[in-house]
């Protein structure tokens, strides 16, 4: 009993060290831009860089588009599989894992081959077309996380009965999804959204190879050209991710109807 608790405390401590040490190292390094004393110079430089604002703004907007696309694809799919095709669930689950197995570089080469300027659909010939492909790629990369988040949300409610209750009151499929299912898995969708956001903000390969001005390539470029600023940038990126996590908590805390259940 007692030794068990000591062991778990020990492992918890080790895990904390494992995750926190590199972070602390990065943070410490990012503060050493001025010789002999800690300063926020690196942060000042980063925040003053117009490219920082452009790239992070761009990535932010694309992440929003990715989230919308991801929810639009995943929520109806997961809903339908749960409701009508429960036997297909393992298959769908496996499919959603593919992006973890297939490297993004394969996806992007596929895009380039299919949609280059001399292809049947020259999406890559325009900035908007490339942005669209990038969003599609991001949505693919975030699929495993989005699917799991939403599927977990669906498991927590009685999808079948709620759907039938709504149908017997006259609701069609769109109404069922929009007014019954989505609002009740909002917390799950939000956690999927924030994971997607974190992925999009840090993604490098797709954006670099499609030659779009995203935050990931900017970070890498910084890493190759500056000393302390990349560390500061990494800390900022971490901060954004953690703020996302905090927001998940906040939202789930404030959704009224779930208060009793937690």
């Amino acid at each position: 009993m007692k030794s068990g608790r000591i062991f778990s405390a020990l492992f918890f401590g080790l895990a904390c060290l494992y995750f926190l040490l590199p972070l602390v190292g990065t943070l410490e390094f990012s503060l050493r831009a001025r010789r002999g004393e800690y300063s926020l110079d690196a942060y000042r430089n980063v925040l003053a860089d117009p490219q920082f604002h452009q790239t992070i703004g761009y990535s932010f907007i694309l992440s929003l588009a990715t989230i919308v696309l991801g929810v639009l694809i995943v929520a109806p799919t997961a809903f339908w599989v749960r409701l009508k095709l429960p036997r297909l669930r393992p298959v769908v689950e496996f499919l959603t894992l593919m992006p973890l197995v297939i490297p993004p570089i394969v996806i992007v080469f596929g895009y380039i081959r299919l949609y280059n300027t001399s292809s049947w659909l020259p999406l890559l010939g325009s900035a908007a077309g490339s942005d669209f492909l990038l969003v599609c790629g991001y949505a693919t990369l975030s699929l495993p996380y989005m699917y799991r988040a939403i599927d977990t949300g669906l498991r927590a409610i009685d999808v079948g009965t709620l759907t039938e209750a709504a149908q017997s009151l006259g609701a069609g499929w769109v109404t069922v999804l929009a007014r019954v299912i989505l609002p009740n898995i909002l917390t799950a969708i939000l956690s999927g959204a924030f994971l997607t956001f974190a992925i999009v903000i840090g993604e490098y390969v797709l954006a670099a190879l499609l030659n779009r001005p995203a935050f990931g390539p900017y970070m890498v470029w910084m890493g190759g050209n500056k000393a302390y600023e990349p560390a500061a940038l990494a800390v900022v990126a971490f901060g954004i991710t953690w703020a996302s996590m905090g927001l998940i908590q906040l939202f789930s805390r404030f959704s009224k109807h779930t208060q009793a259940r937690r």
Binding site: I157, T161, A165, S168, L169, G170
Partner: peptide, 16 residues
Amino acid sequence: NRRRIGMVFQSYALFP
């Protein structure tokens, strides 16, 4: 949804 038949379920099935 077009039958205009109301239904009550054992599990209540209220929209939470």
